[in-house]
Design a protein around this nucleic acid. Structure first.
Lengths: 340, 340
DNA sequence: GTGAAAGCGCTAACAA
DNA sequence: TTGTTAGCGCTTTCAC
């Protein structure tokens, strides 16, 4: 037996009132007689009535859903953020639609288009590309609330939540330099990605400040997956004069580097020192524990959601830019070096 | 400047045809003159028309979205599944709404209700409770496609995708017994959760088969978070005669146990042997590496999504039950014991 | 081949 | 206090 969900009309009929009255009673607005209200409530109960949010949304133009487009939910960094956003959304009676761009601009664009045609109320996006973003500008032109997260997009003026990538990277590399390293490798992500750029700047700035000439052979680019990072690390450390220290731009890369070092028989921190950007569960389980630049992951999603809901409730201030500090957490993966 | 999205009416007007014709041209069905079709296409292009999926859904009763209610996306097991479902959904032109039940029945129920009122096309759920599930039965009564994942719910007859929890747990514990252990601890999750029950059965069956009497002091119950697992492990191993081996029912618990052992100065596998259910990234980074029962995580989400989309495309067979095998992956966290 | 019109379920302005 | 009605944007019979 297939039971169709009851509609407002059914409720109204059972309660012997008009649809308008039924609606008023159920949403408690406008004037409704006490007795009538009771009758309607009873009828609704009896029929197991739940409003059709689709119809409501069509009527008032907005579906109480927020869309969230991230690189990949499998990355614990994004998983945490998605979770926090969902919690806050739920508190406000919204649901969460989630999409992975998988760091493909085309996918981000089509995902966004498909969500836009859902009349979703607002978006939280970690944009794949720092410069190519007509689709985001379009959102803003249509006045759809948008919060950028983890990254910014050029020419897209809206709320965003970032961390101090450059400063964090710089702290890490300065620390390596202070420990006597001068051949410092960088394992970085695709340069289209904003965070990757910023972290590289920090790396370069630290080198420059110490008077160390940049050296392309010290830099390896990889996609942000453990597997790719393994390969990139192997490439970097198969050279005749490899780095004595490595800075990795995210936790997946750090894991890849760890794996690569193990397979190459390179020991940390004896043979090479390592600092990763973004703390991760594994970092304290290894021996030695890994020194990292940590970011306040638990703040990011919540801050973004708060910003978004402020907009949704009509706040009309100029875009806010929140930038969280990062922290160097010194553990055991860096050793002092005298020969450089 | 706020630009409102163009509607079909706008397109029709610009192309000088009726809305019906415009719709036909854009969705390419029915008869449309070539020339007319061109005109409409051009107009749509010019206005940047994208259909309103909300209105379409209201019209034909279903929104091309699938809902997914899992324990917690932060658990890598669920993150992986969610990701795979999203990929498959996207291939079929659907989006994914995600909700975390956080293993709270009440939350699962309210989440489900709120998604149901969205006229979502189907659901994939990892039910929190094995017995309390009127809400899921309601779904079936209304003929909404539902696939249960990781767990079953009593009296809910629908497609489901599971792994052989009991067999996996049994293999693990049998292995410990074969290695000479007789005091085998169990660190388990809330008993309302189906997988927890099954894994405990496997544990008990293995003990029984070896003629080892069950002992309540060997069992500790915790919530599935690293923090809770740490406490539970400490409790278990603070007894006067603690277990010589531990079996943990999921990867978060395994991590908790690892942390607890470290803080207590208990070394693996020398002082205690460990096997965890569910493989996890950290397992091969520790020293020694952790022996685990692995499940084919990458299959589960895909299988569930496939089942769901089969239903959505009208397949009307009796519910399918897929149960994947588990595999004991022997690494280094178990040692041989002669004294028992 | 194309248009007119009904209606999905709901809300809100207006009347009564 | 309640009912009537229009209409959100779309699809789809039915008539021409």
């Amino acid at each position: 037996m297939v039971r169709k969900p009851a509609t407002l009309k059914d409720v109204a009929a059972l309660a012997n009132v008009s649809r308008a009255t039924a609606a008023r009673a159920l949403n408690s607005y406008g004037y409704v007689g006490d007795e009538t209200a009771q009758k309607v409530q009873a009828a609704a109960e009896q029929l197991g009535y739940r409003g059709n949010r689709l119809a409501q949304a069509l009527r008032n133009g907005q579906l109480p859903i927020v869309g969230c487009i991230l690189g990949d939910i499998q990355n614990p960094f994004f998983a945490r953020i998605a979770h926090d956003i969902e919690v806050l959304a739920r508190e406000r009676g919204h649901n969460l639609v989630i999409g992975s761009s998988e760091e493909e601009l085309a996918q981000e664009i089509s995902l966004l288009a498909s969500l836009q045609s859902l009349s979703i109320r607002g978006f939280i996006v970690a944009p794949t590309s720092a410069d190519n973003n007509a689709h985001l500008q379009g959102l803003i032109a249509e006045n759809v609330p948008l919060v950028l997260i983890d990254r910014v997009a050029e020419g897209v003026d809206c709320d965003n939540v970032l961390v101090d990538n450059e400063g964090g990277a710089r702290k890490a590399v300065e620390y390596l330099i202070a420990m006597g390293h001068r051949h410092i490798g960088l394992l970085q992500d695709d340069m289209r990605i904003f965070t990757s750029r910023e972290r590289m700047s920090g790396y370069q700035a630290a080198l420059a400040a110490a008077g160390i000439a940049p050296d392309d052979r010290m830099v390896s680019v990889s996609q942000s997956t453990v597997e790719h990072a393994v390969d990139a690390t192997i490439r970097l450390f198969s050279q005749k004069s490899p780095p004595t220290a490595l800075f990795t731009v995210d936790s997946l890369m750090t894991q890849g580097a760890l794996l690569a070092f193990r397979s190459m028989g390179i020991s940390i921190p004896h043979d090479v020192s390592l600092i990763g950007f973004d703390d991760f569960n594994l970092a304290t389980f290894t021996d030695p524990q890994i020194t990292v630049v940590s970011q306040p992951v638990s703040e990011i999603g919540r801050a973004a959601a708060r910003l978004l809901f402020d907009r949704l409730s009509g706040k009309n201030e100029p875009p806010q830019k929140i930038r969280f500090e990062t922290k160097l957490i010194v553990r055991g993966s860096v050793s002092r070096r005298s020969d450089g």
